Computed example of a mutant assay.
Amino acid sequence: MMTWGMTLDKVTTRWEPVGNNILENITLKLAIPTTAIMLPLMGPSGQGKSTLLYLLAALKWPSQGEITWTFPDGKIFAWGAGGRAIQTDYSNDAVTLRRHYFGFAFQGSTLSPYLTVIENIAYPLLLQGQDWETALPIAKNTLNEVLLPNEKNDINQSASFLNRFPAQLSGGQRQRVALAQAIVHDPYVLFADEPTGQLDLHTRKQVMMVLKRWVEKNRGQRCLIWVTHHHLGDLDLMGIEQLIFVDNKQCVTQNRADLIQWIACSQT
């Protein structure tokens, strides 16, 4: 299996054209092996974790430098300052990335209040050109992937859940439906910005296990990148050692020992 992943080459970014840099001269490379890759973005609040996530997800363009993604299917997408395409296999590369290669599960729900559970999950497939008849069975199968074991029988035996609207769901249920929506098109990379930030500890563990199962189900073909403030808790839940630490306009690859040292220093 070929190695795939992403590269940031001397990337600098700011939110305003003449504002201060948030991230500065970032050079970073992630080569994704055949094992499951789950990469948390950690560090102090307000230092650019979400900004880095948006850059990697093509939701924000760099002010300087280049970003490149190489995928298992051999496609390469690269872009620089102002959204300028450098190398791409599609004329509309950002739309293609977002609809086919990337999935998004953010703290603010992407669910439409006017669509039912099953319609919300199926909607990304319609954006790809599929019809409702094709999309709805795929949406139901995807929902099964993110449900807890005790929920599957209840929901599969009743169509009422599928026909509910987001306002009729609990917080944990909405989060899992949003996850199903984010992965229904089987993306290579799932981006999540504080996906469990508003959930209690029990529900947070449930959602993180859903994410872990999704990555491990197709090892080497999926990658999870998420912003978190839970630090060691998320490393323990996901059983991983590696992270990207964002601080003082820089980001570096670290391991668990580095994070423990930072936490100890920040508490003194």
Rank of each mutant, 00 (worst) to 15 (best):
L237C: 09
V95M: 11
F71S: 10
A159L: 06
N20E: 14
P166G: 11
P124W: 04
F102L: 07
S266C: 08
R84L: 14
E24N: 14
H229V: 10
T34L: 12
P137R: 14
W4H: 13
I155V: 12
Q267M: 12
Q181C: 06
A85L: 08
Q267E: 13
T116W: 02
I26H: 01
L39R: 05
Q173G: 08
A78F: 01
Q107L: 10
Y114H: 13
A180E: 02
G43D: 05
T68Q: 14
P113S: 12
V210D: 00
R213H: 11
V184M: 11
Q87I: 02
Q130T: 02
K49C: 07
G220R: 10
V146M: 09
N248I: 00
H230W: 06
G129Y: 00
I138N: 06
L148A: 08
S45Y: 01
R174P: 02
R14E: 02
L201K: 13
T27D: 09
M38W: 01
L125M: 14
L41A: 05
G220P: 09
T13I: 14
W262K: 15
F161T: 07
L115F: 05
T203M: 14
D154T: 15
F165V: 08
P113Q: 12
D73N: 14
D89P: 00
P187I: 01
L28C: 09
Q206P: 05
A159W: 00
A257T: 12
P187A: 03
F245V: 10
L125E: 05
S170K: 02
A122E: 03
G46M: 06
I183Y: 08
S91T: 11
K60P: 00
P17A: 09
V95P: 00
N218A: 15
L243E: 02
W262Q: 15
V177D: 07
P166K: 09
N156H: 07
E66N: 13
N144F: 02
V210A: 15
I263G: 03
M238D: 00
L53T: 07
D236F: 02
A167W: 04
G43Q: 12
L41V: 04
Q206G: 05
M208F: 00
N20F: 00
W4I: 11
W15C: 01
I263A: 07
L30A: 11
L8H: 01
P40M: 12
L8S: 08
C223V: 13
M1K: 13
L136G: 07
I37M: 14
I263N: 10
Q221M: 12
E145V: 02
L162F: 14
E194G: 06
S45G: 10
S170L: 04
A192D: 02
A257R: 05
M42I: 15
W214I: 00
W262R: 15
